[in-house]
Amino acid sequence: MKPFTYERAQSPAEAAAAAARIAGAKFIAGGTNLLDLMKLEIETPAHLIDVNGLKLDTIEATAEGGLRIGALARNTDLAADPRVRRNYGLLSRALLAGASGQLRNKATTAGNLLQRTRCPYFYDTNQPCNKRQPGSGCAAIGGFSRQHAVLGVSENCIATQPSDMAVAMMALDATVETVRADGATRKIPIADFYRAPADTPETETVLAPGELILAVTLPKPVGGKHIYHKVRDRASYAFALVSVGAIVQRDGSGRAALGGVAHKPWRIAAAEAEMPRGAKAVAERLLAGATPTHENAFKLPLVERTLAAVLSDARA
């Protein structure tokens, strides 16, 4: 871990300004992903701005009937919030399927959205990785790619975004609210939040340098059955091979987003239109254009079968 200076931020705007002003500055909240990566010098901030004191951990109702989740709301608290459990069960389920009790107690809402890939080549600084070291190549292509993306990949990167929570946020049409260095705030629909790897896999989101997430807002509840089905080798404490987050209405219509298949939670409007027709039709649309490797081709039938299980659970 490279040496760094450390400050406790006093206000969100000051934090954002400091992050833009100080070279190599990074925010730290839960730290569960950042410190992991700093120990391996995959992340090498010169300055840490500790945002934990910013009182951004409240979860409150919005005027529109939705919920505004503070960036610092811990995963445990968000999953256990009675309003989330009652009205956004998908989010609660996705959170509880992720990580461990210890990690959920520390990990924050914003940090979870921003967690980086678990590609083993990204994690090994001896190996080429365009995400870690732009231009060095991608060792996962042609290498161990069982966990990797089958959609939205580029010739430079086939990493997945590992967050379970983000899958729920995608299905729930969440909005990410931020403040920038100049104090301006903006709202980014989650669908626009993640960037495809293309030629710059190192840039994962649309956030500008120093831009700080303040909250994630959910629109008013849409009802329906909320199901998050995570598939993994180990029964717990493991990242998804694939996951399906779905909201299914009584008439069979609904929403579905996939985890573990791309650089972002994968959701396609055209696929959702097929939901009353069943899993095969939905999967065909969701997986259109998929480019699996030999090692992760199983994800295609697995997605369809998991979707089928989810739709069947929804009917039950």
Binding site: R118, P120, Y121, Y123, D124, Q127, A139, G143, F144, D233, R234, A235, S236, Y237, A238, F239
Partner: peptide
């Protein structure tokens, strides 16, 4: 490249309580 790729306790999965 001649190495074990999944060289940590997240990549090399061993059973947990739930298993």
């Amino acid at each position: 490249r001649g190495f074990f790729v999944n060289h940590d306790l997240a990549g090399y999965e061993v059973p947990v309580h739930a298993d």
